[in-house]
Simulated assay, not measured.
Amino acid sequence: MKSLKLQRSGPYLVMAPGIILLLLFAIYPFVFLLKISFQEYSPINAVNPFVGWDNYKELFQSKIFWNALWVTAVFVFCTVFLEFVIGFGLAVILNRLTVGQRIYQSIILLPIAMAPTVVGLMFRFMMNEQYGVLNYFAEMFGFSRTAWLSDLNYALPALVLTDVWQWTPFMMIILLAGLKGLPDEPYEAALIDGASSWQSFRYITIPQMSRIIYIALLLRTIDAFRIYDTIYMMTKGGPLTKTSTLSWIVYDRGIKFLDFGYGAAICVVMLILVVSLITFILKKIDLFEVGNRT
Rank of each mutant, 00 (worst) to 15 (best):
L191H: 02
L271G: 10
G261V: 10
T245C: 00
S276Q: 02
S247Y: 01
K236A: 14
I231Y: 04
G263L: 00
L240F: 12
D259A: 13
D259R: 14
G238S: 10
Y251A: 11
V275R: 09
P207M: 04
T235H: 02
T230K: 15
G263P: 08
V268E: 08
I231M: 04
G238T: 11
M233G: 11
K242Y: 15
E289M: 13
F280V: 14
V290T: 14
I285K: 07
C267F: 06
Y228W: 01
Y228E: 06
G181S: 09
A190H: 10
Y232W: 13
D193F: 02
I255C: 09
A265D: 12
I222R: 03
P186N: 00
I213W: 02
L273S: 04
I231S: 07
S196W: 04
R220E: 03
I266W: 12
L218H: 08
I222G: 01
Y203M: 01
F225K: 09
Y203V: 05
R220W: 07
T245A: 04
T230P: 06
I206S: 08
N292E: 14
A224N: 01
G181K: 10
G254F: 03
V268M: 08
G181N: 05
S197M: 07
L246R: 00
L219F: 13
I227K: 04
G261H: 11
I281F: 05
R211K: 13
D229H: 03
T205K: 04
L217G: 07
T279M: 15
N292Q: 15
S244K: 05
I222H: 04
A216Y: 08
I212G: 00
S196D: 08
I204V: 10
R220K: 11
I204F: 06
T230G: 06
I206M: 07
T235W: 07
T245R: 04
Y203S: 04
G254N: 02
G238N: 05
Y203P: 01
L282A: 13
I206L: 11
A190S: 14
L218R: 08
N292L: 15
K236E: 15
V268S: 00
I231Q: 00
A224T: 10
T279F: 14
I255V: 13
L287M: 14
G261K: 09
L258S: 14
A189K: 09
L246N: 00
Y262P: 01
I215P: 01
P186D: 08
I249M: 15
G263K: 08
L287N: 15
I249N: 06
G237I: 08
T243P: 05
Y203W: 03
R202N: 02
I204M: 05
G291D: 11
Q208G: 07
D184R: 12
L287S: 14
A264C: 11
K284S: 14
V275G: 02
R226Y: 03
R211F: 13
I231A: 01
L182G: 02
L240M: 12
T230D: 10
L273Q: 06
L258H: 15
E289P: 09
V250W: 03
N292F: 13
Y251R: 06
I255A: 12
R226I: 11
V268T: 08
A265S: 12
A224Q: 10
I272P: 05
T221E: 03
T245P: 05
P207W: 11
I281A: 02
S210Y: 03
P207N: 06
I192S: 08
V250C: 02
R253M: 12
I227P: 02
I215Q: 05
P207K: 00
A216R: 09
I266K: 11
I231F: 00
Y214R: 01
